[in-house]
């Protein structure tokens, strides 16, 4: 038994880091991702109200505010909020039409739901003290599996066994086809993995890097000589990384959505 190690390995790492930095710097880059109950300090059950609940509800509320309250006036000449709502609508609709094809339009509300949820979860997660729901593999895995199951079901419902021609590259020379089919099958099943880990990993990495730089920022309080150089640099780095994260928050939502469209196109038109 190792009671100390079993308690928190992360904490132990933090003390080690403190030791090597020679001061009271506190490194807890992963603590921001902890799922905690909103009220009390008990265990996290299935239906406990947690910070996950809070920030998901906020994402839904933000989407509601933008797309429903923002367009409630139904103006012919749109105001600022309505313009943004229409921009988002046009953006995703055009993406679905261009990438997945006209016959994918019935899936437009579904894809729009994914996009709005991810983009607002990402942006709300950038607020200080916020919890980023999309940085959790459990969340993104569900999102990716939803897409994977939808695409597979749609493919088989639309084309039956013909959907399997997705894996049989008929433009390749015949001896190569079985090899390519194996690769295609593997890549097909890796899709939900990369799809979910890309989003969660990007969010997690960016936020953790910000936290690491943030841990260096109070250096000047410990040692003026070192801190006078390190503190401004780390604040500058936080600013730069934060700007990059704003970009990444949008790009990852965009990439998740466009990959959903690409997979959907494969399901609707499996023939290469």
């Amino acid at each position: 038994m190792r009671p100390a190690g079993a308690a928190t390995k992360g904490r132990r790492m933090a003390t080690e880091a403190q030791g090597s930095e020679g001061g009271g710097l506190v490194f807890h880059p992963m603590d921001q991702f902890m799922v905690k109950p909103l009220f009390g300090d008990g265990a996290v059950g299935m239906f406990t109200l947690t910070n996950v609940t809070l920030w998901m509800v906020l994402a839904v509320a933000a989407t509601f505010a933008l797309l429903v309250l923002g367009t409630s006036k139904r103006e012919i000449v749109p105001g600022r909020t309505q313009s943004i709502a229409e921009l988002a609508y046009d953006f995703i609709r055009k993406m679905v039409e261009d990438v997945a094809g006209k016959d994918a339009l019935p899936f437009f509300p579904y894809i729009m739901t994914l996009f709005m949820f991810i983009v607002f979860a990402n942006f709300l997660g950038l607020l200080p003290m916020a919890f980023t729901t999309t940085s959790h593999i459990a969340v993104t895995a569900v999102l990716a599996m939803l897409v994977f199951v939808t695409v597979t079901v749609v493919g088989f419902v639309r084309h039956g066994a013909g959907f399997l021609s997705l894996f049989w590259v008929s433009s390749a020379p015949l001896p190569l086809r079985p090899v390519l089919a194996l690769i295609e099958v593997i890549s097909y099943f890796v899709r939900p993995v990369s799809h979910s880990i890309r989003l969660a990993g990007n969010m997690m990495a960016g936020h953790a890097v910000v936290k690491v730089f943030a841990a260096f920022a109070p250096m000047i309080a410990l040692s003026v000589g070192v801190g006078i150089l390190v503190t401004p640099l780390s604040i500058l780095a936080i600013t730069a990384i934060y700007a990059l994260e704003v970009l990444v928050a949008f790009i990852q939502a965009y990439v998740f959505t466009i990959l959903t469209c690409v997979y959907l196109r494969d399901a609707l038109h499996p023939h290469h």
Binding site: T48, V52, M56, V60, F117, A138, V139, V142
Partner: peptide
């Protein structure tokens, strides 16, 4: 915490 997250994600979606 997975059950909790997945449940609330499903509700939100």
């Amino acid at each position: 915490t997975f059950g909790n997250q997945i449940f609330w994600l499903a509700v939100a979606l």
